[in-house]
Write a protein that binds this DNA or RNA. Structure first.
Lengths: 155, 155
DNA sequence: GGAAAAATGTTCAATGCTGAACAATAAAGT
DNA sequence: ACTTTATTGTTCAGCATTGAACATTTTTCC
């Protein structure tokens, strides 16, 4: 009868979203434990995977893909560079930008880490059938689209 | 033909999960902006909502619900206490535990914040029909169950 | 061509979160 | 009863993240 339920946790959408947030948090923690042996944390892994996929990307582009600030990259990338996992080369045409790429060691480590990550995701979503995964993905696409629109309108 | 795709991002489950993680990150950022006017951030909001719902909870129980460490509560709760939003009273029977509750001001602020939060979620999931939300929620329940089992087995 | 605006990366102070070590209290084992 | 173990909350050092201020370089606009 009452469309505006008394409490947020009675709203179906609210409850759904709480589940999403909770699952994300737990997955993040599980992932952190899973890759601890490789001496990297999830922010490093996100960086490495993106460099694996998009070789020669700039710091700015990387930050945008990861939805973090530029300053964050300025803090993390030198660490990975010192460990010999990535290389930062100045761009030939634009003297402001640094082009990022994985070293041999970086590619090896990333391959190992991605295997672990994929394994964890497969195991965690094993109970969720493929078509259900697809439906979830579609729902998330919609949500991402709306959130990005909101962001653009405000900022 | 090839069951083990060459790259993680070709796995359907992997792609699905990336979407979930991305949506969560964007939602978190949008929520942070949405409640900035109330001078609280999402960790504070999570605390306040749980106190609104579970009056008299202990710090330990709260930390467990929020999936964070006890030390985190020890840092954040005194802030909220100083702002007069919550009260911490020693338990009568067990001298170790502190029982948490919202003050009048805390309840008011929490009500406002929950209205904003619910509004944002409703708007963001508006494109996602109710039955689809339910399916997503079910999928997340499965995922949460598996992750919690993994956690218990390891730790 | 030259001034104004924008883009890129860096630095810094502030804050959040964690895990480990700790003190106080309670519960279990003997 | 007494020793041992577990639980609760606190403190602290370490790291991640942010936003603002900054220097350098590029683009835009007149």
């Amino acid at each position: 009868m009452n469309e505006n339920q008394a409490f947020p946790w009675d709203h179906p959408r609210f409850r759904s979203w709480i589940g999403v947030a909770r699952a994300c948090q737990l997955m993040q923690q599980a992932m952190t434990r899973a890759i601890a042996d490789l001496d990297i944390k999830t922010p490093h892994l996100d960086i490495l995977i993106n460099l694996y996929r998009f070789d020669g990307i700039s710091q700015q582009e990387l930050a945008r893909k990861l939805l973090v600030g530029r300053s964050n990259m300025s803090m993390l990338l030198p660490q990975l560079e010192k460990r010999g996992l990535i290389a930062r080369r100045p761009d030939a045409k634009d003297k402001r930008v640094l082009r990022l790429s994985l070293t041999e060691a970086g590619r090896d480590l990333t391959a190992k880490a991605m295997a672990i990550q994929t394994g964890l995701i497969e195991r965690t979503l094993s109970k969720t059938p493929a078509d259900r995964c697809l439906q979830v993905a579609e729902a998330m696409e919609d949500i991402i689209g709306i959130l990005q629109t909101m962001e653009d309108d405000e900022g």
